[in-house]
Amino acid sequence: MKVTVFVSPKTTVLDPQGAAVEQAIKSLGHHSIEGVRVGKTVTFQMEGSDTPEIRDEIDRLCDGLLSNPVIEDYRYEITSE
């Protein structure tokens, strides 16, 4: 199965990259757009199926390595690719 992890800056934390991108978007004339946040996605193949144990394992991975809980949130999707 394929796991896609989406990591994004916490809403309470300043996101300089998001702010810069938002400024660029506005300078292109798209004034109705706001709240830009720039995160990252991490994808990997994993053996097994979508079980609570597997989800535990992914959570541990996300909480320690793939995201920093001080500044980032994460969510993930599991697909059968």
Binding site: P9, V13, L14, D15, P16, A19, N68, V70, I71
Partner: peptide, 10 residues
């Protein structure tokens, strides 16, 4: 405690 992120000047 805390974390360090991108400089605000990018």
């Amino acid at each position: 405690p805390g974390a360090l992120v991108r400089n605000d000047c990018m």
